[in-house]
């Protein structure tokens, strides 16, 4: 895999939100307008890049059995740094993101990439992977934020759009609109890539995948 493919897979084939279906909570919650979507995307990208680099650098030092707690501590450290930077330099963004800023810690994308990529690859590849996944996450958030802001409040980055600002569908900026737009986007992705039409929740990236899998296998055995 070339460096370019490594970067671009995060944006299209393995888009973390629309294809792997990870990080749904921040996607739904912060895409009410483009500005907060962009802020969330940028914050998560910074954390993802830093954690991927450090985890990849420490991949031979961290014992396999305690790797998940180690990853969580590293990620939480970077999240705290980003949190402090945002509080100091962009208080408006801090207000808009609120609780979702510290919750980047439990964003499945970050732990998922640490598990699936950073602990198996060298620093440069991991950094590129982090950037690509972050870009995919940010672009999807901005796309959803744009749809919800343009049709929901008739503005884009706060600029009024002539006809739509008088005829806005304000439900799109509220909770039901988030689910609805996300559902439509995934349906669109399914339509474009028919081979992936049967999509399941992205288990591969989830840190609990093994437990979850063991559990479902147990259930099958029990049924038999």
């Amino acid at each position: 895999m070339t460096k370019l493919q490594n970067f671009s897979k995060g944006i299209i084939q393995e888009n973390p939100v629309l294809v792997l279906v990870l990080g749904t909570c921040p996607t739904l919650a912060t895409s009410t307008n483009v500005m907060s979507a962009l802020g969330m995307g940028a914050a998560a990208t910074v954390v993802l890049l830093c954690s991927n680099i450090v985890i990849s650098a420490l991949r031979k030092v961290i014992p396999d059995k305690v790797r998940i707690p180690c990853f969580i501590v590293l990620i939480a450290g970077f999240v705290t740094m980003v949190q402090m930077l945002v509080k100091a330099f962009a208080p408006v963004l801090d207000n808009a993101l609120g609780i979702y800023l510290p919750l980047i810690v439990v964003n499945c994308i970050i732990l998922g990439r640490a598990e699936m990529f950073a602990q198996k690859n060298n620093i440069i590849d991991s950094a590129i992977d982090g950037l690509g996944m972050g870009a995919g996450f940010t672009l999807t958030l901005v796309l959803m934020g744009s749809i919800r802001e343009i049709f929901g409040s008739g503005t884009w980055f706060g600029m009024a759009i002539p006809v739509l600002s008088d005829n806005n569908i304000s439900i799109l900026t509220m909770a039901p609109g988030g689910f609805f737009v996300f559902g439509l986007l995934i349906a669109l992705v399914n339509k474009i890539s028919p081979d992936k039409a049967k999509k399941k929740i992205g288990c591969a990236g989830c840190p609990s995948a093994e437990i979850c899998k063991a559990k479902s296998e147990k259930e099958v055995v029990a049924v038999d």
Partner: peptide, 15 residues
């Protein structure tokens, strides 16, 4: 519809 099967229709129902 086929492209709505699975996750998309679940999200619309959640909406």
């Amino acid at each position: 519809p086929k492209s709505f099967k699975g996750l998309p229709i679940t999200l619309v129902a959640a909406s």
